Amino acid sequence: MEQRVEVAPDVDGVRLITCTGDFDHDTLAPLRAAGAEAASDPTVRWIALDLTGLTLADSSMLSQLLFMLRTGRLVLVNRVPPALDWMFDVTGVRELFPVVGAADLRRAL
């Protein structure tokens, strides 16, 4: 499946990045760029990452998520998709990633 990274306009210091499709070492560049841009922007208080449409992820995707988590501003939106679910369990990182519902996103942050 083709992958896509969409960055919504910031609202109240929250930058929403939505990822759909397959993400592996060869297709991770757009997410890396969006994550780096958000992390370097001092007006972004929270990086909200919606991975609901993720269909494939490898260890390089997990590495990118951990990099974004180190900013102290990352939150996952809606749920952890099946493509990452098992990897979160195997590596024991599930509890590191805060998850909020899309409807509660702005209120929760």
Results as ranks from 00 to 15, higher is better:
1 M>N: 11
2 E>M: 13
9 P>K: 11
9 P>C: 00
10 D>E: 12
10 D>S: 11
12 D>V: 12
17 I>R: 01
18 T>N: 06
18 T>C: 03
20 T>P: 00
20 T>E: 13
21 G>E: 06
21 G>I: 03
22 D>T: 10
22 D>A: 12
25 H>G: 11
26 D>Q: 14
28 L>G: 05
31 L>R: 04
40 S>M: 07
43 T>S: 15
43 T>G: 05
44 V>P: 00
44 V>R: 04
45 R>C: 09
45 R>V: 13
46 W>P: 00
47 I>W: 04
47 I>P: 05
50 D>W: 03
50 D>I: 01
51 L>I: 05
52 T>Q: 12
53 G>N: 09
55 T>L: 07
55 T>K: 13
57 A>K: 08
57 A>R: 07
59 S>L: 10
60 S>D: 12
65 L>K: 07
67 F>C: 00
68 M>T: 05
68 M>R: 02
71 T>P: 11
72 G>C: 02
75 V>H: 07
77 V>T: 05
77 V>L: 09
77 V>G: 05
77 V>P: 11
78 N>K: 15
84 L>S: 07
88 F>V: 07
89 D>Q: 14
91 T>F: 09
91 T>I: 04
92 G>C: 00
92 G>V: 00
92 G>T: 01
93 V>P: 02
93 V>W: 07
94 R>H: 02
98 P>A: 00
101 G>E: 15
102 A>H: 13
102 A>Q: 14
105 L>D: 05
107 R>Q: 15
109 L>S: 09
109 L>N: 11
